[in-house]
């Protein structure tokens, strides 16, 4: 290594040092510790107490609620996530058209996703109030009798999916950014070949933005397993545990019941699940994600 190279290495490390320290303190060390805690009974008030595989055994063999929360979460993965991804993509395609006053349109659709989630959760609880809520009032106007929404175990999850659609702007903006990266020449060339709108979408747009669809899919997968403020505020996991999701149950175990060891075991199971799903998505991505090299 030349002196110049050594100097550059030193400078490089100097600049990334804050992140590197953060990686050790806030990621690497915690991951190791949570692995250790997952084999203990740890209430924080008392020191960790080694219990071996007990936490894992209880979770898998004796905790109905764990399975219920997993089932609920997979429901959201199966229905909520695809709907959300499609809605975000559809909206982005619409907002990528060249029409007047687009800036205002974009702002309107993006706005809900940056509002404080507590405020929007409170708002939606009120909107979905079975007796006085606006939603049932509108349905009533069409002669439909609205369901109990968040109050009904059968409807609570679909209601949360609907609530999620309002915040679709976050994913939309990322799609939008990538749509603007698609080279215009490709469309022009296709037009000359006589391609219609649908063909352009399937053959140009979707392949070109597939890396971003992939990114949103992975983030959505991980997000579905996280603690959701909306759910916490709007239902707290009820009614009859119908909205007790994995992230919420983990939060309750850790920070309401102070079963840190048990919650750490849950976190590790979650880690393995997301890892597995990410690998599957990655493997499959070779078939549908198109990386265009060269850049701009």
């Amino acid at each position: 290594m030349t002196r110049l190279e050594k100097g550059e290495l030193r400078w490089g490390l100097f600049f990334i040092l804050p992140w590197l320290l953060g990686l050790v303190i806030f990621t690497a060390y915690p991951i190791i510790m949570s692995f250790y805690y997952s084999f203990t009974d740890y209430s924080i008030v008392q020191e960790p107490f080694w219990v071996g595989l007990e936490n894992y055994r209880t979770l898998i063999k004796a905790d109905d609620l764990f399975w219920k929360s997993l089932k609920n979460t997979f429901y959201m993965l199966g229905f909520g996530l695809p709907i959300n991804l499609l809605a975000g993509l559809g909206l982005a395609l619409l907002l990528n058209m060249k029409v007047k006053a687009m800036a205002i349109h974009r702002t309107i659709f993006y706005l809900p996703s940056i509002l404080p989630e507590v405020a929007t959760a409170i708002l939606w609880v009120w909107l979905f109030n079975p007796q006085y809520g606006l939603v049932n009032a509108i349905l009533n106007w069409f002669g439909i009798k609205g369901p109990g929404w968040l109050a009904d175990p059968a409807w609570a999850k679909p209601t949360l999916i609907l609530m999620g659609l309002w915040g679709v702007g976050g994913g939309m903006i990322i799609y939008l950014a990538s749509l603007q990266d698609v080279p215009q020449e490709l469309y022009e060339a296709a037009e000359i070949d006589g391609a219609n709108g649908w063909q352009k979408l399937i053959n140009i747009t979707l392949p070109m933005i597939s890396p971003v669809i992939f990114f949103n899919l992975i983030m959505g997968l991980i997000g579905t397993f996280q603690f959701s403020v909306q759910t916490f505020v709007a239902t707290g996991g009820g009614p009859a545990y119908s909205t007790m999701f994995y992230g919420l149950y983990l939060y309750y175990n850790a920070f309401q019941w102070w079963k840190m060891g048990y919650a750490s075991a849950m976190a590790w199971i979650l880690f393995l699940i997301t890892l597995m799903m990410t690998i599957i998505v990655f493997k499959s991505s070779a078939r549908w994600v198109y990386y265009h090299t060269g850049g701009r």
């Binding site: 109030n129 079975p130 007796q131 109990g148 968040l150 109050a151 009904d152 059968a154 009614p239």
Partner: peptide
């Protein structure tokens, strides 16, 4: 029970 929860939630 569903009517009951609809009632109590209002």
């Amino acid at each position: 029970p569903t009517k009951y929860t609809a009632f109590t939630s209002s």
